[in-house]
């Protein structure tokens, strides 16, 4: 049954990657990559159960944290072209 779940997640990952490649705007791609990260996190957790190695969940936890930070960092980078504090003339401020 875990095999069926991981197969479903892999199908969903492929569909999401298709959108990441098609995506007309940069925001479509970021959205697709973010969803892909969530699916990868689920796949890692399910694989942990499949191979009976619960240590995989630690990796899944770290993956969730990195996925969140990476998405915010990519958006901030495309918005301001740097990752530090906003400049005086960046009128939008923080994302």
């Amino acid at each position: 049954m875990f095999i069926a779940a991981s197969a479903a997640i892999i199908v969903a990952m492929i569909l999401t990657l298709t959108r990441a490649m098609l995506g007309p705007t940069i925001y479509d791609r970021i959205l697709a990559v973010n969803l892909f990260g969530t699916k990868a996190l689920l796949l890692i957790a399910v694989m942990g159960f499949l191979t009976d190695r619960p240590e995989f969940l630690d990796i899944a936890l770290v993956y969730a944290l990195i996925n969140f930070i990476a998405t915010i960092a990519i958006m901030k980078f495309f918005r301001f072209a740097h990752l530090g504090h906003p400049h005086e003339n960046d009128s939008l401020g923080d994302l």
């Binding site: 705007t25 940069i26 925001y27 970021i30 959205l31 973010n34 969530t38 996190l41 957790a45 619960p54 969940l57 630690d58 899944a60 936890l61 969730a64 944290l65 969140f68 998405t71 915010i72 958006m75 495309f78 918005r79 939008l92 994302l95």
Partner: peptide, 30 residues
Amino acid sequence: VTIKLALILLFMFFASPTTTHALAKAAIAG
């Protein structure tokens, strides 16, 4: 294992709306 899964779930419940909101705001501003 259950506690770790619950922590993943708790974290994603805070992180996912933040990401979505930031993306929506960035898309409108872009």
